[in-house]
């Protein structure tokens, strides 16, 4: 029964993924997010079929066990672009590093100012990095994985809708700087938008996305001690 349920859970998620992806491919609207749409489809199916969330957990952990090797695989695009990486090293390191610091510190302050509960604040901290890194930050330091994913998607959606206009408005014209900001500020969704601006912006955004993820997980222990648990 458990095996059957696990198989069903995986099948359901696959179906939701392909449906959400097909809808996105068809309309290409940034608000049609594959993660949120797919998760909503799965949640609605579970509710309609009266399957408790607990029954979905074995399937969930099986699917998420592939997230580890997928994250490690991000070394491949980094390696393929190693020359680009070293050619623009100062801009990349400083842009991604200070951008990441700004993201974590400013959201912690804004959340404290808004008097949000601790668990919500902890889940907000990794909002600018792609989901596998965000999930690890909350797993190690507290917070909710579901909330963190939702905040990551919200940040990505916001960045992909307004990011380009904001950069133009504040006078960032350099294509490499634009790509770096989009990847640092709104991870994969920002990267998709950066690729629409041009291949140079897109590649830079992809590199920034991975580097911002690494930087956030490295900085998180220190920043959480300084900002949240002081």
């Amino acid at each position: 029964m458990r095996i059957l349920m696990t198989g069903f859970g995986i099948g359901l998620t696959l179906g939701a993924y392909f449906l959400a992806k097909a809808l996105y491919m068809r309309y290409r609207h940034p608000l049609l997010n594959v993660v949120l749409l797919g998760a909503t489809l799965v949640a609605v199916a579970l509710l309609l079929l009266k399957i408790p969330y607990q029954a979905y957990l074995p399937a969930r952990s099986l699917m998420m066990s592939l997230l580890g090797p997928a994250t490690v695989g991000l070394a491949v695009p980094l390696y393929r672009n190693r020359e680009l990486l070293s050619r623009h090293a100062p801009a990349i390191l400083a842009g991604v590093g200070l951008g990441t610091l700004t993201s974590v510190v400013s959201v912690a302050w804004l959340a404290a100012f808004a008097a949000l509960p601790c668990e919500v604040v902890l889940s907000l901290l990794p909002k600018s990095v792609t989901i596998p890194f965000a999930l690890e930050v909350v797993r190690l330091h507290g917070g909710s994985q579901a909330l963190a994913s939702a905040f990551v998607v919200a940040t990505g959606t916001l960045g992909s809708v307004f990011g380009g206009a904001v950069l133009t408005w504040v006078g960032v014209q350099d294509p490499i700087a634009r790509g770096l900001a989009m990847g640092t500020g709104s991870h994969g969704q920002g990267t998709a938008m950066a690729f629409l601006e041009g291949p140079q912006q897109g590649t830079m955004a992809g590199l920034a996305m991975t580097l911002a993820g690494i930087t956030t997980t490295l900085l998180a222990p220190l920043l959480i001690r300084l900002l949240v648990r002081a």
């Binding site: 797919g38 998760a39 509710l47 998420m64 579901a146 994913s149």
Partner: peptide, 14 residues
């Protein structure tokens, strides 16, 4: 990659 993000977000229903 995006497929693996979906299971984590299903918990949002709670």
């Amino acid at each position: 990659l995006v497929f693996f993000f979906i299971p984590a977000a299903v918990d949002l229903m709670n």
